[in-house]
């Protein structure tokens, strides 16, 4: 079975290490915060100026001056810090954030990512995404493997305007965990019950498949 959004988030959460500073993008990446493994403490960075993002507030503690990068009302954990946008992106651009998780429309086998516009149709702007992919060493992209018509989004070459060039190394979809290296996707894990054949079928890019592809372990 293909993974649900929550299960994708669960698999990403296994990559978190104790002591990590982590930036989670909007959408599936945000859900990762719900599955932080026991014994692991991370500080969530929100690029609008918060290190140490906490859970949503209650009705009684809601504060319009305290939001995350998705403009949702949030809280700050003990040990949190507030700062300006320039300071925030100094952290990001300067490589101080340990892990960045973000979504994408397309990725390709050169490590390029497209996530911010569809010409003539959808222009949301890049927000902080271009800075995040340029600044982080350790990036995980979460996305769907193909669109609803079955057209692959795991490509030889991105067709949409890029967010960043040659910066993506790991991608988790509802079907697979893949690594990008030497100009190809390498299949590392498959979703439970999903065949290698199905993944191959939905992958337009060059895909290197080892003899044995283990199933993801999703324990929560």
């Amino acid at each position: 079975m293909a993974l649900t959004r929550e299960q994708i988030a669960m698999r990403v959460a296994q990559e978190l290490e104790d002591g990590f500073y982590v930036n989670l993008g909007i959408g599936i990446p945000t859900l990762v915060a719900n599955y932080i493994p026991e014994g692991v403490k991370v500080m969530l960075q929100s690029e609008n100026g918060l290190l140490g993002m906490g859970q949503f507030p209650t009705e009684e503690t809601i504060d319009p001056d305290l939001i995350n990068a998705g403009k949702q009302t949030v809280t700050a954990v003990t040990g949190a810090a507030f700062f300006s946008s320039a300071e925030s992106f100094a952290m990001i651009r300067g490589g101080h954030v340990d892990l960045t998780v973000l979504g994408a429309f397309e990725v390709d086998q050169e490590g390029n990512i497209a996530s911010w516009m569809i010409p003539g149709k959808l222009v949301k702007g890049m927000g902080g995404a271009m800075d995040l992919v340029a600044g982080a060493e350790n990036i995980i992209v979460t996305m769907t493997h193909a669109n609803k018509h079955g057209v692959s989004k795991i490509l030889k070459k991105c067709t949409l305007p890029l967010t960043g060039a040659k910066c993506i190394k790991r991608v988790i979809t509802e079907l697979a965990l893949m690594e990008i290296k030497d100009g190809a996707f390498h299949l590392l894990e498959r979703a439970p019950g999903v065949s290698v054949e199905e993944i191959k079928e939905k992958t337009e890019a060059d895909l290197v498949v080892p003899d044995h592809v283990p199933e993801m372990k999703l324990n929560s």
């Binding site: 690029e47 300006s84 946008s85 320039a86 925030s88 992106f89 990001i92 651009r93 222009v123 702007g125 890049m126 927000g127 902080g128 995404a129 271009m130 800075d131 600044g135």
Partner: peptide
């Protein structure tokens, strides 16, 4: 002129 958020912040700084 769409500008990456960190670049925008730094341009102003």
């Amino acid at each position: 002129i769409l500008t990456p958020q960190g670049t925008l912040a730094e341009k102003i700084r």
